[in-house]
Design a protein around this nucleic acid. Structure first.
Length: 869
RNA sequence: GGGAUUGUAGCUCAGUUGGCUAGAGCGCCUCGUUUACACCGAGGAUGUCGGGGGUUCGAGUCCCUCCAAUCCCACCA
């Protein structure tokens, strides 16, 4: 089998992937005597296609999985997809709307059918894309957040929390999206700055400010800071009559510290139904709350003549009326304020009071380490106690800050797609249960759960054995106890995900998993950054030409080039830039690897290369390098230093193996060793570039030992230091020979008595590209500045002058270094305070530099004598 | 308003608990079609490590301060 001269990934990738999948190498084995390593794949939303960000997490996790398999673990990387309730629901509604259909016309069941069709189409495509990226999770354990077993777990946790009083139903202010007609959680609200108008209105004796006059109809409380001197004649609870938009109202004075005396007039009226702060003030003082805006975003009858109008159209009319009544004091057109938008769909959020389901984060109802604590306290403790480590560490601070500001989590959504709330009503009765209640007349709550409620269980709900979950005689504890996967793989070893879902997901997994299982969901969280465009912008749909489609890149440059581009320069918690040039650079690396293999195929194709038998100094040297790389790779990847691991590999392959060892091996071939070193290199490169390495492994006949994907790391060998040092000397001599022959334009060299050079002269001649390199007893030409060897390059007087010039530069460098070292060693404080080894090292360096300078001096003197003669 | 991150060669970034003359890749310049590779090889140039101050025998690394950029959280009617 002869390899073609360039690697064409498309010819191999699909077959290679199929061979992995067929072999079962990705499959975890809970019964294995090996140690276990587990990662839950963050399930991508079943809403579309995978993008470069998905490619990043797939690659990093795949590297972890393959690497840990190589180091001797039984690895479970569990794949799955997320039903993405709100996003999917919205997409399907939109598709229906384009056909002029409303989901209510369709009915709940038919709508859900539609969503399921849509999702399963996307799912199939996404799973194929994961394969295209080379990801090798355990497909036999593929999970979906809407699987029956996972649904069971959702219900179990809901009911358990309900019974413990951690889930309650209450009328509280929520973020309502009138467009999608559902609530969203605090974390799903994003703010966008906008220029607006700020109105100052006359309200009885007070002037109040507002940016939203349309909410003011029902206002009957004026609030001011208790310490505000300007209003000290008014007392809390005082009442007064005021002429207002639609006639006179009776108003009450409220004193509350939430008011900032420095803002506007220091007085405001409140609208508790439509503002979070106002709601809290009203709660504190037991004030009445009234709805002004309907859930459809239109004004209610309280608005009088404006009832039924949308806010945008009503606002100017209301202002007009206020002005006509002389209640408008002034307007400020240059007022910047923040609009609250739904992160999904970007609809304007209208706070509303609604009867919703909440998770109470403050109730001490969780047993954790022998103490009854609140969810919030447990979330804090697991990080504080080091049960979970976050990489990079700085995110711990961000996480704590989030927890400190955490409010109860609104978990009910008014959409149809998702896990339906397992609560039934009959008259005044409420029943919460994993299964529907017995008897007639029960109606299930129409709402579904926040997507993140089910994703919060992901690390363990996916490990519950589905057959057991179908048996309702078992309790949640039984399910966990009897599921081998849960017993073996939980807590999972690593959670690898983006920092952007630290709150949405990571924190909620901690919340739900500690509560439901008594275990942390994972021991380490590694957070990667966002993938940005080459000029540092976000890849967004509004800027399509900057978007890199992974599949397109794969078909053009190969999966491995994309994977390497994503790994190179990646670091924990930091965003990274990826452009086409980076992908091309890494394609070149793949090609280099390919051509190394091509050479070795020709030079050592038949050698078996099972055991290394080093003969020459170069052989010892490359084995030493390979061993060093093996150790470094373990250290790097065990500490999530993906980029460093790749850099080391890159330099080993390109510099050590291709540029030095193979070139050396052309003079002194050792077929078995070439084959061995290539095999080791393929193993080490495999986690990063699985396709090309596996292709070469099979094409070059290594496959007798099985698939590359199943190989352990190469053995770390004890180097023969003396032989290694010999090759280091040879390298140095070769570099000097190249440099000097180029600098002075002469390629004839000789050397004096040297055992090593007697042996290595042909090698030096070849690598240094010198025309002649013979042994002699006379000083013949200019001496190269290297200690321990006397090597001369022949030259005429002109060339001697060039030599002097160049050696002058070398001397200057040496002198400045000597000077630095002298200053350091003359400093008593340095001698006394620095570690003795370091001082000793400095002394040795100084000595070596003196030797070198002496050599350069002698040489300079001799050459200048000769040149000037 | 609170907090985080980043600032090192033209560009993208490494630089471990402070310790050799600050590195890599790309780009640039010179040379080279040596039977694996021009998606290549050899050689070369390029840095007041954002500014200032401090601690130290020694600072790209630690502390203070300022400047610039990015982001997160909160939110004021």
């Amino acid at each position: 089998m002869k390899l073609p001269s360039a690697y064409n990934p498309g010819d191999y990738e699909a077959d290679i992937y199929a061979s992995w999948e067929k072999s079962g190498v990705f499959q975890a084995d809970p019964g294995s005597p090996k140690k276990h390593f587990s990662i839950s794949m963050p399930p991508p939303n079943e809403t579309g296609t995978l993008h470069l960000g998905s490619a990043l997490f797939l690659v990093l996790q795949d590297i972890l999985a393959r690497h840990n398999r190589q180091t001797g673990y039984d690895v479970l990387w569990l794949p799955g997809t997320d039903h993405a309730a709100l996003a999917t629901n919205a997409l399907v509604e939109k598709q229906l709307a384009e056909q002029g259909i409303d989901r209510h016309q369709l009915g709940r069941e038919a709508f859900i059918e539609k969503v399921k069709q849509f999702s399963s189409q996307n799912r199939g495509r996404m799973l194929e894309q994961m394969r295209a990226m080379g990801a090798g999770p355990d497909w036999s354990r593929l999970r979906y957040t809407m699987d029956d077993a996972l649904n069971r777990c959702v219900n179990e946790v809901f009911v358990k929390m309900y019974d413990d009083g951690l889930i309650y139903r209450g009328s509280r202010i929520v973020n309502w999206d009138p467009q999608l007609k559902t609530t969203v959680s605090d974390d799903e609200v994003v703010h966008k700055e906008e220029q607006g108008t700020f109105y100052t209105l006359q309200y009885g004796p007070f002037q109040i400010g507002t940016a939203r006059p349309e909410t003011k109809f029902g206002d009957k409380y004026v609030v001011m800071h208790p310490e505000d001197e300007r209003y000290k004649q008014y007392r809390h609870g005082d009442t007064f009559e005021a002429e207002w938009i639609n006639g006179p109202v009776k108003a009450t004075v409220i004193k509350d510290e939430a008011v900032d005396p420095a803002f506007g007039t220091g007085v405001m009226t409140i609208t508790p139904w439509h503002d979070h702060t106002d709601f809290e003030i009203a709660e504190r003082h037991g004030l009445e709350k009234e709805q002004i805006i309907g859930f459809d975003g239109r004004l209610l009858p309280i608005a009088g003549e404006f009832a039924g109008q949308k806010i945008a159209e009503a606002r100017p009319k209301i202002v007009e009326k206020l002005q006509a009544k002389g209640l408008l004091v002034k307007t400020d057109e240059h007022y910047t304020h923040n609009l609250a938008l739904n992160d999904r769909g970007k609809g304007l959020i209208e706070p509303q009071i609604k009867l919703q389901w909440f998770v109470d984060v403050n109730r001490p109802a969780v047993q954790w380490k022998g103490q009854l604590r609140s969810l919030r306290e447990v979330m804090h403790a697991v990080i504080e106690d080091g049960d979970i480590k976050i990489v990079p560490k700085r995110f711990e601070k961000i996480y704590f800050h989030w927890i400190d500001n955490l409010r109860d989590w609104c978990i009910s959504r008014q959409i149809w797609w998702g896990h339906r709330i397992p609560v039934w009503y009959k008259d005044e009765e409420i029943y919460a249960g994993v299964r529907p209640p017995e008897g007639q007349g029960w109606t299930q709550d129409p709402d579904t759960l926040d997507t993140w409620f089910s994703s919060a269980l992901w690390t363990w709900s996916t490990l519950v054995k589905p057959e057991l979950a179908a048996d309702f005689s078992l309790s949640l504890e039984d399910l966990l106890r009897l599921s081998p996967d849960f017993q073996t793989y939980h807590p999972t070893s690593v959670m690898e995900t983006g920092w952007d879902i630290l709150f949405f997901w990571v924190a909620r997994m901690i919340l739900a998993t500690t509560y439901a299982t008594g275990q942390v969901p994972f021991k380490t969280v590694y957070l990667h950054g966002l993938v940005r465009t080459e000029d540092g912008k976000k890849m967004s749909k509004s800027n399509p030409e900057a978007i890199i489609d992974p599949l397109e890149v794969i078909s053009q440059y190969g999966t491995d080039a994309l994977r390497l581009a994503l790994v190179s320069g990646v670091s924990a918690g930091n965003d990274m830039r990826v452009g086409l040039s980076k992908i091309i650079d890494n394609r070149n690396f793949c090609n280099k690897l390919w051509n190394i293999a091509r050479y070795i195929e020709g030079a050592a194709g038949d050698a078996d290369g099972q055991t290394p038998e080093p003969k020459t100094p170069a052989d010892h040297w490359i084995l030493d390098k390979l061993s060093i790389l093996t150790g470094a790779q373990r250290r790097n990847l065990d500490n999530f230093k993906f980029s460093e691991a790749y850099q080391d590999l890159y330099h080993f392959v390109w510099d050590d193996l291709a540029d030095w060892y193979i070139e050396a091996a052309k003079a002194e071939p050792n077929a078995g060793l070439l084959k061995y070193v290539l095999g080791g290199s393929l193993i080490l490169a495999h986690p990063f570039a699985p396709f090309i390495t596996e292709t070469l492994w099979q094409q070059l006949g290594y496959a007798k030992a099985g698939l590359l994907a199943a190989q352990p790391l190469p053995a770390v060998l004890q180097a023969d230091k003396a032989e290694v040092a010999k090759f280091e000397d040879i390298k140095q001599i070769v570099s000097l020979a190249r440099r000097w022959s180029k600098a002075i334009g002469s390629d004839t060299l000789v050397y004096h008595d040297s055992e090593l050079l007697d042996q290595a002269a042909p090698l030096v001649k070849r690598l240094g590209r010198v025309g002649k390199f013979d042994k002699t007893t006379e000083a013949a030409g200019l001496r190269l500045p290297i200690e321990g060897y006397e090597i001369f390059i022949s030259a005429n007087k002109d060339k001697g002058r060039a030599y002097l010039e160049k050696i002058g530069g070398e001397k200057a460098g040496t002198e400045s270094l000597i000077n630095n070292l002298k200053v350091r060693l003359n400093n008593e404080n340095y001698i006394n305070s620095a570690p003795p080894e370091l001082v000793q090292e400095s002394r040795e360096q100084l000595e070596a530099q003196y030797q070198k300078l002496k050599l350069l001096d002698e040489e300079t003197r001799m050459v200048s004598d000769w040149v000037s003669r």
